[in-house]
Design a protein around this nucleic acid. Structure first.
Length: 372
DNA sequence: GATTCGTGGGG
DNA sequence: TCCCCAAGAAT
């Protein structure tokens, strides 16, 4: 085996590899064992596209209900192209990585206008669409159009690392290109769709990150790691840096007629364009958190509020940082000048705004702890 | 190339 | 509890 150290050319990894036997075993297994998933009902390029965006860094079980309701609400390119952005974000609420759906709608509008509503079928055109990178380009081309393009995701890198005993760090962007080169040489030209999906399906249900089910694997006779007994050491993946801890003071502010103040986040960055309750990062060593929150709300929104008791404290972990939130109930004293990004809404009206999970949680705490 | 972008599940 | 992760892309 090659082990760590040098980086080989793609053709060096597939010396003596039984390409045709592998293709046949993989594809026939996929035909037998593939899961019954809602985006596999047909090959509508739009629905393939939507599913691939949703599945980015997201589990299948999580995606299924979102996919079903999304394609029901927005069944076609045109329906999504002309949809209200607020409703689109609401349909994505809780799914995370919200720029995915903003980019999707933007790209769908591009297809609607520049391609007459037809998803293009060349790598050049597809990969220019917002939110469509190398993986999604290959996935749409192969699954919807039967074009033999590589679709290299985490599954494919894990599976191929084991099968071909590749000891390169899959956390490095450069490594993905090595795998794409390999796929170009071994992909089935007659059924690239099932070949690509078969690799991913295998990674999802057999060749799993920990304790892979090698004895059930349809391609174990092609697998170098199984032969060497190194399947638990592969793939090589360096871990990423630790997360920052950020203290946040949040105000749930109510008017005398029971309306709540909500704010729409900036157009870029974390949780862009989602709604939230007014909040500020607490800087230690200054004044009291309640004073910082009160001053922030006055300076930012020209709203006079008196901050009251702590409703709850809760943590919310993102992939790269953690919010330590202290939630205060408060009362709005003066009047509020509402804008596109600042609104007073009733409890019922809150339902139609898209909030990140962190603020859904603190609202729930508030509702269960406060008297009506 | 390294960092930013969410969330819920599982070992 | 904690940490890793899951069908990545943009910056």
């Amino acid at each position: 085996m090659h082990r760590e150290g040098k980086q080989l050319k793609s053709y060096e990894y597939i010396n003596d590899f039984n390409i045709e036997g592998f293709q046949t075993d993989l594809i026939s297994w996929f035909e037998r064992e593939q899961r019954d998933l809602p985006w596999r009902k047909d090959q509508d390029p739009y629905k393939v596209w939507v599913s691939e965006i949703m599945l980015q860094q997201t589990r299948v079980d999580t995606v299924i209900p979102y996919f079903l309701s999304f394609v029901e609400q927005f069944p076609t390119i045109e329906s999504l192209a002309i949809a209200d952005e607020e409703k689109v974000l609401k349909a994505w609420e809780g799914l995370g990585y919200y720029s995915r759906v903003r980019n999707l709608q933007s790209a769908v509008q591009e297809v609607h206008e520049a391609y007459d509503g037809i998803v293009p079928n060349t790598a050049d055109e597809i990969s220019k669409l917002k939110g469509v990178g190398p993986y999604t380009t290959g996935a749409i081309l192969s699954i919807a159009y039967g074009v033999p393009e590589p679709a290299v995701d985490g599954n494919v890198m894990r599976v191929l690392s084991r099968i071909l005993s590749i000891w390169e760090d899959i956390a490095k962007p450069k490594t993905r290109k090595t795998f794409e080169d390999i796929i170009r040489e071994i992909i089935s030209k007659t059924n690239p769709s099932f070949f690509n999906q078969g690799l991913m399906e295998l990674g999802a249900i057999v060749c799993t990150p920990t304790s892979p089910s090698c004895l059930l694997c349809p391609v174990r006779e092609h697998c170098q790691a199984f032969l060497d007994g190194t399947q638990s050491e592969l793939p090589v993946k360096t871990k990423k840096t630790s997360v920052k801890d950020i203290p946040i003071a949040v105000g749930i502010l109510k008017t005398k007629d029971d309306k709540f103040l909500i704010h729409k986040r900036a157009d870029t960055g974390l949780l862009a364009k989602l709604w939230e309750f007014p909040n500020v990062e607490v800087l230690k060593g200054l004044t009291l958190p309640t004073n910082q929150l009160q001053e922030f709300i006055f300076n930012e929104f020209q709203v006079e509020a008196s901050i009251g008791a702590i409703v709850s404290t809760l943590q919310h972990a993102f992939s790269h940082l953690t919010w330590n939130m202290t939630v205060y109930a408060g009362v709005i004293e003066g009047d509020v000048k509402e804008t596109e990004r600042l609104k007073l809404v009733t409890i019922d009206e809150l339902e139609s705004y898209a909030f990140p999970v962190s603020h859904q949680k603190l609202w729930k705490e508030y509702r269960t702890s406060q008297p009506i």
